[in-house]
Write a protein that binds this DNA or RNA. Structure first.
Lengths: 100, 100
DNA sequence: GTTGAACATAGATAAGTAGCAATATAGCTT
DNA sequence: AAGCTATATTGCTACTTATCTATGTTCAAC
């Protein structure tokens, strides 16, 4: 059965926007010193800046996506990088296609 | 771009459940006197009863789905029948498949 | 070890959502 | 027209969400 909690994570224009940007991080975010945009993910402050919200607000959104399993967080040094969980997203799309 | 308002309509276990039941109304609801379960849809009180909520609560859920364009309402006499909008649902699934 | 940067957490406010009981409205049915 | 039934609307409470500022924590770099 489809999980409404996961759909709730998607029910936000800001979070949908982030997921779009994370499809091609290199196109949307500046280079990072200590983490690869593609391999490791994008750091929170970049996302906050591009979203036009304060950093804690961005953290909240990203944690919501992570709780839903749609992105993963990776801590490197003082940075936290977020990237899409493509397997989880594919699985979700498949479930929606089948069950909705 | 995916519309977060439509996804918000799906972000509820109760509304997801209703959409599932409406896939096969005959299997899930008793016969109706004045409207065909398949052609016209299912009346609100049946849905309220099966959901285990008061009638106004069911109305709210169904209106949310209707506002999102996922179901359509049809008034016949004193009844309002709700049924899935299969075209809209297919379109949504397609968009999710492509854009998520 | 002190400073500064990145991120998380806490606390506050405002807005939205789910639920109910009560009431209103609309339409049969007699 | 009177009464009954189905649905919608209203008014309320409780809970959740989005946002911010302020503070805490972690870690790098000097």
């Amino acid at each position: 059965m489809l999980d409404s909690a996961v759909l709730a994570a998607l029910a936000s224009q800001k979070r949908l926007q982030v997921l779009q940007w994370l499809k091609d991080p290199v196109a949307h975010f500046p280079p990072q010193r200590d983490g690869d945009l593609i391999e490791d993910g994008v750091c929170v402050v970049f996302i906050a800046r591009k979203l036009g919200v304060a950093q804690p607000t961005a953290t909240t959104h990203l944690q919501a996506l992570a709780r839903a399993g749609l992105v993963t967080a990776k801590r490197i040094g003082q940075w936290t990088f977020y990237k899409r969980d493509e397997a989880a997203l594919a699985d979700l799309k498949h479930k929606i296609e089948e069950e909705l």
